[in-house]
Simulated assay, not measured.
Amino acid sequence: MNDPLSLMARARASLAVVTAALALCWSVACQAQSAPSSPSLQLCAADLNGSGDAADPGEMAYCSPTVAGPQLCPIQEVACTADAAGQYSCPAGPQFACVTKLAGGIPACSPNQCADIAANPIVDEPPILDPGSPPDGAVDADGNCLGKIEIFAGRGMRCRPPGISTTLSNCCKDKGKIIKDGMGSSLGSIGTKVAVAKGVFQGMSAAYAAFRAGATAGQAASAGANALVVGLDPTSIAISLAVNFMIEFLFSGCDSQDMETAMLRGSGMCHEVGSYCASSFLGVCLQKARGHCCFNTKLGRIIQEQGRPQLKAFNGNLWGTPKKPMCRGFTPEEFQALDFSKMDLSEYYADIEARAQSEIQLDIKDRVDAYLKAVQPQ
């Protein structure tokens, strides 16, 4: 009978030999199979619908590596055809090369060219930087403003429709009238509508942080609601809509200005100036943005829209450009020159009437219950 210690020693020696052999084989294999570096990431884009940009779904794609080296754009990719001699040609035109993907298959071609992202990075425009007119400036002993007075002043903002930078999310989507005109003492000073919009983004951030920390979706929504309503009169915003808005944007590619603009826009407080390109690649637009002038109230937006055409100061340049909206308020002299008899304020009157009717039906208990439901943990 063999000595157990001897058997163990031989087993260890065999294991050492096998380990050394495997290490040698691994070293040899690594040396023999040292592959070239992985191909660089390349991108292609094409305006398929003639809109003047490649910001719509399916108009931008990452390219596929090929056996020959040049990468293949999958946009409008077609299989090449072979003649009697077995020579392949591209149906899109002889100027486009037929290449074979690394995965194999019939050679293919595309009329759209690929470009290296490292050598040709995507160019992104920053959000519109417009803090608006600073409120509550210096006053003298009698309370007279010592600075420049602007009436119904706004702020330049932007939101982005579906595109590469928003992960194809519509960051301009209308989610209903979340912020209300003239509701609650907390909205009494200029600029607070934008502050409320930022409060919703803070609520979303709190919800996202809670979710990443392991909270359930319900718990994350509760955390966001707590951050959202702190310091706000429950009548100043539609809390349920705001929470839904917050949760829907939670995993989108929208940023804080997208959210602010979408909320104010949905509440009827923004004038859209136009669209511009926010992200481009080799001169091809991949992401559009919509520039706006957003105001503290719907009434402010309506008077600005109907008052500016009456004033010579705005002739030929009513709103600036989509990328640089001109959102200043009226000077006292300009405001006095406005002819309100030529303005159609029916949109605002209808909103007041509809809101008054709904408020009659909603008593104080319902308001308090809605507030407590939003702040209490689920």
Score class of each variant (00 low, 15 high):
86 G>H: 02
152 F>H: 06
124 D>T: 13
348 Y>S: 07
45 A>L: 02
313 A>E: 15
243 V>H: 01
141 A>S: 08
215 A>D: 04
378 Q>E: 11
257 Q>V: 09
256 S>H: 11
85 A>I: 06
288 K>H: 12
278 A>L: 06
76 Q>V: 06
76 Q>S: 14
255 D>A: 07
87 Q>A: 14
124 D>K: 11
311 L>T: 08
213 A>T: 09
96 F>I: 00
211 F>Y: 13
44 C>L: 04
349 Y>K: 08
6 S>I: 10
319 W>P: 00
72 L>T: 02
239 I>E: 04
239 I>H: 01
268 G>C: 04
291 G>L: 07
99 V>H: 00
235 T>I: 13
305 E>S: 15
84 A>Q: 14
239 I>S: 03
239 I>A: 03
92 A>G: 03
59 E>Q: 09
64 S>T: 15
247 I>P: 02
100 T>V: 11
97 A>T: 03
306 Q>W: 14
141 A>N: 06
217 A>D: 11
350 A>Q: 13
143 G>D: 04
154 G>H: 03
137 G>P: 05
336 Q>I: 07
347 E>Q: 12
224 G>N: 02
202 Q>G: 12
126 P>E: 08
114 C>P: 04
126 P>F: 09
26 W>F: 11
39 P>H: 07
27 S>L: 12
264 L>N: 04
105 G>Q: 07
195 A>F: 13
41 L>S: 10
371 Y>L: 12
310 Q>E: 14
225 A>R: 02
354 A>S: 15
66 T>M: 01
96 F>G: 01
